[in-house]
Amino acid sequence: DETGKELVLVLYDYQEKSPREVTIKKGDILTLLNSTNKDWWKIEVNDRQGFVPAAYLKKLD
């Protein structure tokens, strides 16, 4: 059920640097789980959840 889920576009590649982070690729469109922290957003990638720098993402309307 995708209702109410926010999507984000990945602006730059990011390689995870800790187990709490996930790797993302430029151009991916992913589900945003939590954006309350202005610097690190929690997203879902391939059934994995983790954090990436918010500056690497853009919210889609």
Rank of each mutant, 00 (worst) to 15 (best):
E6W: 14
I24V: 15
N46F: 14
L33T: 05
Y14G: 00
L32G: 00
D1T: 14
L33R: 04
K26W: 03
F51P: 00
W40P: 00
T3L: 13
L11E: 03
Y56M: 08
D47V: 06
Q49A: 10
D1M: 12
L9D: 01
D1H: 13
K17R: 14
V10F: 01
V10Y: 01
L9E: 08
K17Y: 05
Y12A: 14
I24Q: 00
E2R: 08
D13R: 03
D47M: 11
W40D: 01
P53I: 02
V8M: 03
L32R: 01
R48I: 07
P53S: 02
P53N: 02
S35W: 11
Q49G: 05
Y12P: 00
L30Q: 06
D39N: 13
V22T: 04
L30F: 09
K42Q: 13
T3N: 12
T23C: 04
L7D: 04
Q15N: 12
V45G: 07
T31P: 15
E21R: 04
L60Q: 05
E2S: 14
S18K: 08
L7F: 15
E44F: 07
K38R: 12
N37M: 08
A55P: 08
K58C: 15
N37G: 09
N46H: 13
L30V: 15
T23P: 03
K5V: 12
I43V: 15
D13G: 06
P19N: 10
Y56C: 10
D1I: 14
K38N: 11
E2L: 13
K58N: 05
E16W: 07
N37P: 04
I43Q: 00
L9M: 09
P19V: 09
I43H: 00
E2C: 14
D1Q: 14
Q49F: 07
Y56W: 06
W41Q: 00
I43N: 00
S35M: 08
V45I: 12
A55D: 07
G4H: 15
R20F: 13
V45D: 08
D47F: 11
S35E: 10
G50K: 02
F51I: 07
T31N: 09
K26D: 02
I29M: 06
E6A: 12
G50I: 08
P53C: 04
D28L: 10
D47R: 10
V22G: 02
V52G: 02
K26N: 05
N46D: 15
S18N: 11
S35Q: 09
K42G: 04
T23K: 04
D39L: 14
L33Y: 04
P19K: 09
L11A: 03
Y14A: 01
L33V: 10
Y14M: 01
A54Y: 03
L60P: 03
V10S: 04
T23I: 03
E16F: 08
I24Y: 04
A55E: 09
P53D: 01
T23W: 03
K17E: 07
L57V: 08
P53H: 02
E44T: 07
D47Y: 09
L30H: 15
N46K: 12
A54T: 05
K5G: 08
N34W: 07
E6M: 14
Y14N: 00
S18L: 08
D61T: 14
K25S: 09
E44M: 11
D47S: 12
L57Y: 01
I24C: 08
Q49W: 08
N34P: 03
W40T: 02
T23F: 04
D39A: 12
T23V: 03
E16D: 05
L11C: 06
D61P: 13
I43P: 00
K38G: 09
G4V: 14
F51V: 07
K58Q: 11
T36M: 10
Q15M: 12
K26I: 05
Y12H: 14
